[in-house]
Simulated assay, not measured.
Amino acid sequence: MAAKKKKGPLKNLAAGRPPVLHRPKSMSRTATKAIINKHHLLQKRKRQAIAKGDKAEVAIIDAEIEALGGLERYQEASLQGQRHDRGGDSSRVLMQWLKSTFSPQKPDSSRRLRMLEVGALSTQNACSKSGHFDIVRIDLKSQEEGILEQDFMERPLPRDESERFDIISLSLVLNFVPEAKGRGDMLRRTTQFLRAPGRYIDSPGLAASFPSLFLVLPAPCVTNSRYLDEERLVAIMESLGYTMAESKTSQRLVYYLWRRVRVCKGPGTVFPKKEVRSGSSRNNFAVVLS
């Protein structure tokens, strides 16, 4: 009987850890929606408690969030929402829009475009598999190897053009920012990470789509908000130097591709919180540029 081989010592702590991503058991659409909605509600209550300076209430809410599973559970629900039978990977819409821009053959590494994917949940989405992008993926809580654990609002600004990106993806990220002003700040900050519009002057195909911002939101944020409709969103984005290149509305989501057409200098136009629709059934999603 052969002797069992003795295992050697672990090289480092990481070598002995299980994989970061544990694929959750499938959740029903109802359960997925309930977790996401509950998480958003608790975050809203927490913001209100912080504004009041009620530390005891903040602690209670934090305990409720932890009992719900914290950010990890929210991300599991979000991953379930990316299943094909529930609308699937949102980047498939982006790749469909860019189909005529790219040739069928995958480019070599020197010709791939740079993408920054904020709120990345997977390294296996349509953009990743396309072969047309070198992707930097970041998220507040990394779910797998290849995703950097980082807050976009704290990411160091690019030092030069080589550190900027051709496209930024904000898919179901902006709606998770707790305050209306914070959402405006995030949209404004995207312009600091994108390359200048004139870079693609010798490539009309690329110039029609890049540099750009891929933005995905729950449809009610735009279709049923008291403070935001598509007309106001267009005005906000245009004030930041963007123009709408593509849009799509499904039952659950709204998709936009915003092309950066100019570099804005100075403070720009102010967009306060302003009612654009009345009615008790409206939600309070808003974007503020101050």
Rank of each mutant, 00 (worst) to 15 (best):
residue 51 A to D: 14
residue 52 K to V: 12
residue 55 K to I: 12
residue 58 V to R: 01
residue 58 V to W: 00
residue 61 I to D: 06
residue 61 I to A: 03
residue 62 D to E: 14
residue 63 A to Y: 07
residue 63 A to D: 15
residue 66 E to Q: 11
residue 66 E to Y: 07
residue 69 G to F: 01
residue 73 R to Y: 10
residue 73 R to P: 09
residue 73 R to A: 14
residue 80 Q to H: 08
residue 80 Q to P: 01
residue 81 G to N: 01
residue 83 R to M: 01
residue 84 H to G: 12
residue 86 R to Q: 10
residue 87 G to C: 08
residue 88 G to E: 06
residue 90 S to T: 13
residue 91 S to E: 00
residue 91 S to K: 07
residue 92 R to M: 12
residue 94 L to H: 07
residue 94 L to V: 08
residue 95 M to A: 07
residue 96 Q to C: 07
residue 97 W to K: 07
residue 99 K to R: 11
residue 99 K to Y: 11
residue 101 T to L: 03
residue 102 F to Q: 00
residue 102 F to N: 10
residue 103 S to K: 08
residue 104 P to Q: 04
residue 106 K to S: 03
residue 106 K to H: 01
residue 107 P to R: 08
residue 110 S to C: 09
residue 111 R to S: 13
residue 113 L to W: 01
residue 114 R to S: 12
residue 117 E to S: 11
residue 118 V to I: 13
residue 118 V to E: 00
residue 118 V to S: 05
residue 119 G to R: 11
residue 120 A to H: 01
residue 120 A to N: 02
residue 122 S to C: 06
residue 122 S to G: 10
residue 123 T to C: 14
residue 123 T to V: 15
residue 124 Q to K: 15
residue 125 N to A: 00
residue 126 A to E: 11
residue 127 C to D: 03
residue 128 S to R: 02
residue 128 S to E: 13
residue 129 K to C: 10
residue 131 G to Y: 05
residue 132 H to W: 07
residue 132 H to F: 14
residue 133 F to L: 04
residue 135 I to P: 00
